[in-house]
């Protein structure tokens, strides 16, 4: 009986591994291609393990000026995350604590602004930004537009986190002599820290991959982020797949590492917060 049970477990695990492997194939293929050299790329049948692994990271990095692109991506992601955390944390808290018709209206409007697709919002954003002269600061424009895009998501996530902090803790702090702002920083924020960090990380990663706004608002190559760089690299009829995959691998490896290390927190943050 027990043996059967273990056998079943192994069978289940084996099938699960097979499913994960199948799903992860594109990621694997990206790395393998990045390691292949010119002729092996076009080999038919394709080889699933590079004969002479050659990671042209330095060459691609320099040729594609990835340093500049990634720096711009980082600037945009940091800027967006900063704005979102500063503005959104308090809002998530207030929405979790106060219940009134106005707060419901506020929450509903925030939820509605979360669903607006970037590709549909970019037209008015582009025109209005250019009219008020914001386009002279293209990265700032992208940061503002992207912050408005992801702020609702952050508010929703942190609201769920704050809702899990028992109200009495804050009340106790108030009776003990703290102000509401004092209690917010000394009680609510520390206790909601994990949720806030996960939400901020998700915003950061999402902004690291931002494309529509950067593509449309930033003209100067020197200010464009890595997504736009990758797009221009691929072009319509690219054949330098090793280069593209090397670029992609350099770009996403930190993201994937982040994810693997914090997987448990990210999944639990998402499931407890956003998906109930």
């Amino acid at each position: 009986m027990l043996r059967d049970e273990r056998l079943t477990q192994f069978a289940l695990l084996f099938v699960a591994l097979a499913m994960v492997a199948t799903y992860m194939f594109p990621v694997y293929w990206m790395y393998v291609t990045a390691l292949k050299t010119g002729t092996e790329i076009t080999a038919w049948p394709p080889s699933f393990w590079p004969a002479n692994p050659d990671f042209a990271a330095v060459e691609v990095w320099q040729r594609m000026r990835m340093g500049t692109y990634l720096k711009n991506s980082a600037i945009i992601a940091v800027g967006v995350t900063a704005i979102v955390v500063v503005l959104g944390t308090g809002c998530g808290y207030a929405l979790a604590r106060v219940r009134s018709r106005w707060m419901d209206v506020a929450l509903f409007s925030i939820l509605m602004m979360q669903v607006l697709p970037s590709s549909l919002m970019i037209t008015p954003i582009f025109v209005s930004f250019s009219q008020i002269g914001l386009l002279d600061y293209p990265r700032t424009s992208v940061i503002l537009a992207q912050a408005a895009k992801v702020l609702p998501f952050y508010v929703v996530l942190t609201r769920a986190t704050f809702a899990q902090v028992p109200r009495e803790l804050e009340e106790s702090a108030l009776v003990e002599g703290n102000s509401r702002i004092g209690a917010f920083f000394s009680i609510n924020v520390p206790l909601a820290r994990n949720g806030i960090l996960v939400a901020a990380l998700l915003i950061f990663l999402q902004s690291l991959g931002e494309y529509v706004y950067s593509r449309s608002l930033i003209q100067s190559r020197a200010l464009q982020p890595a997504t736009v760089g990758l797009q221009s690299f691929m072009g319509p009829n690219t054949s330098d797949w090793q280069g593209v995959m090397t670029y992609a691998a350099i770009y996403v490896t930190p993201i994937i590492l982040f994810f693997v290390f914090l997987q448990r927190q990210i999944v639990s943050g998402l499931t407890s917060g956003a998906l109930k």
Partner: peptide, 24 residues
């Protein structure tokens, strides 16, 4: 844990996913 790994596909920048699939 294995289930969580699937989210890697969700967390990657859409443009990179597009790049990889256009090669596949």
């Amino acid at each position: 844990w294995l289930r969580g790994l699937f989210l890697a596909g969700w967390i990657m920048p859409g443009l990179v996913v597009g790049g990889v699939w256009s090669w596949i």
